[in-house]
């Protein structure tokens, strides 16, 4: 298990390899489709400070508000490939060191990770309750009214947030490896 404290830096992230398990402490920000197109199209300045050296978590949480304070109830990763057109440019613009999600991302993002010194981290899809338990505090929420609960950018402080490196900054992708192997078996099964 490799410990990562946020904000982090390029050297730390470049040391990570596909298959490494990480445990993250610090402040990260959630962002899905609406947030990514907002960041790319409007390049808002209000989130620069937050995102530099941090991570963006593809997650639309279930939240609850008690005594005026937000709490994460369920918060697993969402499918990352929807952010494929945006991810590289957004990481570059804001100095983001990792995207966390599920299902992996494509060639464009893999190239960006190599260029920028960033990684893609895979959390266990559907493990929403235990991932929410690693969210210790909700610091802020950005664009809640406009984007709605799942799509808003939640600024969260995490402790021992677990994920696996499935795309590293050296051009390796576990998703490409598994796909290539399974394609061979698929062709055998189909007699193609």
């Amino acid at each position: 298990m490799i410990k990562i404290n946020l904000p982090t830096d390029e050297a730390k992230i470049r040391s990570l390899k596909v298959g490494d398990e990480v445990s993250i402490d610090g402040i990260m920000v959630t962002g899905r489709d609406a947030a990514h197109s907002w960041m790319l199209d409007e390049k808002p300045d209000e989130i620069r400070e937050l995102l530099k050296g941090s991570m963006i978590y593809h997650c639309g949480p279930v939240v609850d508000k008690k005594d005026g304070e937000w709490r994460f109830v369920a918060a697993g990763p969402t499918t990352s490939i929807r952010e494929e057109p945006y991810q590289g440019p957004v990481m570059k613009e804001y100095g983001i060191r990792a995207a966390i999600g599920k299902g992996g991302m494509g060639a464009k993002t893999l190239a960006a990770l190599k260029e920028l010194g960033a990684v893609y981290l895979h959390a266990v899809g559907g493990a929403a309750t235990i991932l929410a338990q690693s969210v210790k505090k909700v610091h802020d929420v950005i664009r809640l009214e406009e984007f709605g609960v799942p799509e808003a950018m939640w600024v969260i402080e995490v402790e021992d947030f677990r994920a696996v490196v499935t795309m590293d900054s050296h051009g390796n992708s576990l998703h490409d490896t598994v796909k290539a192997k399974s394609e061979k078996i698929r062709n055998e099964l189909l007699g193609l």
């Binding site: 997650c59 639309g60 949480p61 309750t129």
Partner: peptide, 15 residues
């Protein structure tokens, strides 16, 4: 996660 969701009556998955 399944056990934790049952114990806390919280969603198994956020989606």
């Amino acid at each position: 996660n399944i056990t934790a969701a049952q114990d806390g009556s919280t969603p198994i998955c956020q989606d």
